[in-house]
Design a protein around this nucleic acid. Structure first.
Length: 534
RNA sequence: GGUGGGUUCGUAUAACGGCUAGUACUCGAGAUUUUCAUUCUCGCAAUAGGAGUUCGAUUCUCCUACCCACUACCA
């Protein structure tokens, strides 16, 4: 039909965006970009009671961190973003700022017999609900019960007129037709049929705050904004028949968007959907960014926990979608190329925190040494380490001054051992500060006279080594020396490692000695001797 | 309760009627390594249950079970 692809992500600013919401936004974004179309962010703030300050800014910032940038919508400063591709202005993108638009559409439905005025107060409805519940039934405002309630279908015309003018808590409800089978097609789920007898007369517009409800606002805006595909969460599937009926009532069937309903993200263990609590309990974030609520409770965010946005996006993309082959690592560009609604999984996906970490580990390895070094330097500063611009890999342990090259060399050696940059300090602190204590178990295992006497001989060998100190120069001769004497390699080396690292783990001895230098090496050998005996 | 959706190793998924049900994470074993880590090799482990259609069913149909969503003047 040649319509330009236009999709939207339409969050309501009632709190921080959950990672499931980010996934929905991501799929919309991928779909739009693949088709060369537009990705729109629309803020659905039609519920004045649930509005949370800062939530909108949070949502936009979170998406931007992920690299999900809208072609149209609101930016993180609240300013309108609009592309040149827009054929006519679609702004504003906040439904609260569009309130003037909706009333006439609601009235149009009434004029054409698709909707009616309802004057039942909240208390009255609560009462009939309570009565039904007492009888073990569920009250539904539908074609049967509407005949017994106060609305423009049951009241005389004059009374309706009077109430419209004199009262301010009435609503407009959709008049759901009787016994009609709605035939729908979902891009992911296929053909679905629902009988309208099982549906209720949903409120479309509220006089009290002069705002539409989700259903009306959603259909009107999707129409006005020329949305071609609606990709949203599974929780909307039950209201799809209503939405179909609304498009029909407005006479917009020919431009009705196609629908795709995504399954939910489930909690890692047990049943149910992923919630904030699961993250707190199991120690993983459920939010893209850190969030502090009105009560002052702070929730973890992927960004603050040290995840790379590329890793976060990648793991999210693979939760409920697959490329149809074994590829697991995808950049945003690759995702845009490979994405397809055909490969979306119908069932809910349990989130696996282990796999999330694995993704970050993989992306960490992919980063350049420079980039990782820049991320490591602020952490070093927190530990009182000064990083200078001096040339070469030089270390001054007394002044705690190390060159950029020194840090970079370390990063290149340790990055394979970490999942997060935040782990670098624990992994490599001994390359900046001499160990002050020695791991008990390792000490008991290796620091024995028959071992350390040999270790000190090896230390003498290293100290008197007259070539330039590099790993390449040192490694071969060192090994030959120990093997030549037929000394037990593992035991001797671990005595040295205990002295240099404080434990029997860490880099190769040649690496460490090359980095810290002769002087520091000697000092550490002396210290362990004084401390543990020699 | 009603309506709709779903169900392949522990987890994420592949196999769009046809090999021995593949891959990744996790876990286990081995190899390499001066330790640790890495790397490599191998291994454990699944079609919810039952009918039917078919030469043949993970795939199609029906029933049962279980899970999820919705059932607001919330989105």
């Amino acid at each position: 039909m040649g319509r330009r692809t236009r999709v939207r992500f339409a969050p309501s600013p009632t709190g921080p965006l959950h990672m499931g919401g980010v996934r929905t936004a991501l799929y919309n974004y991928l779909y739009a970009k693949q088709k060369g179309g537009d990705f729109i962010i629309r803020i659905e703030d039609t519920d004045s009671h649930r509005f949370v300050p800062g939530a909108e800014e949070y949502i936009i910032e979170a998406l931007r961190w992920c690299g999900i940038i809208p072609d149209e919508g609101v930016d993180e400063n609240g300013k309108v973003v609009e592309t040149a591709s827009a054929r006519h202005p679609h702004a504003p993108y906040r439904q609260s700022q569009r309130r003037g638009i909706y009333r006439s559409y609601a009235e149009q439905l009434i004029a054409n017999g698709y909707a009616y005025y309802a004057f039942d107060s909240a208390e009255e409805l609560e009462k009939v609900r309570g009565e039904a519940e007492a009888k073990g039934e569920t009250f539904i405002y539908n074609q049967t019960t509407r005949k017994t309630l106060r609305n423009s279908l049951t009241l005389p015309e004059e009374e309706t007129k009077r109430l419209l003018e004199e009262t301010t808590d009435w609503t407009v409800r959709f008049k759901m037709p009787e016994n009609l089978v709605v035939k729908m097609d979902d891009l992911i789920r296929g053909h679905i049929e629902v009988n309208t007898d099982t549906l209720d007369d949903k409120v479309l517009w509220k006089r009290a705050d002069e705002l539409p409800t989700y259903h009306l606002a959603n259909i009107v805006d999707d129409h006005l904004m020329e949305i071609t595909e609606v990709i949203r969460g599974e929780e909307w599937l039950p209201s799809l028949p209503l939405h179909y009926m609304l498009y029909k009532a407005f006479g917009w069937e020919d431009t009705m968007p196609r629908f795709a309903h995504l399954s939910l993200l489930l909690k890692p263990v047990g049943n149910g959907k992923l919630s904030k609590r699961d993250g707190d309990k199991m120690g993983f974030p459920v939010f893209p960014l850190r969030w502090t609520n009105a009560e002052g409770e702070t929730s973890h965010g992927y960004r603050e926990d040290g995840y790379f946005p590329e890793a976060f996006v990648n793991l999210l993309a693979m939760l409920g979608w697959n490329p149809g082959n074994d590829q697991e690592m995808f950049s945003m560009e690759e995702l845009i190329k490979a994405f397809s609604l055909d490969h979306i999984v119908k069932s809910g996906a349990k989130f696996n925190p282990e796999k999330a970490k694995w993704y970050n580990k993989e992306y960490l390895r992919l980063k350049s040494d420079e980039e990782l070094t820049d991320l490591f330097i602020p952490i070093l500063k927190e530990h009182g380490i000064i990083v200078t611009n001096g040339s070469g890999a030089r270390a001054d342990f007394k002044k705690k001054e190390f060159t950029y090259d020194y840090v970079k060399t370390i990063v290149s050696l340790i990055k394979v051992r970490a999942t997060f940059v935040s782990e670098f300090w624990d992994i490599a602190s001994y390359l900046f500060v001499a160990p002050s204590s020695f791991e008990e178990k390792d000490t008991a295992k290796f620091w024995k006279e028959e071992n350390y006497t040999l270790a000190y001989k090896v230390a003498d060998f290293i100290s008197s080594f007259d070539g330039e100190f590099t790993k390449e120069n040192l490694e071969g001769p060192l090994e030959e020396f120990i093997r030549g004497n037929e000394w037990p390699m593992g035991k001797v080396m671990n005595c040295l490692r205990l002295a240099l690292v404080g434990a029997s783990s860490g880099l190769g001895i040649a690496d460490i000695v090359t980095l810290i230098g002769k002087e520091e090496f000697a000092s550490r050998m002396e210290y362990i001797g004084k401390t543990l005996g020699k």
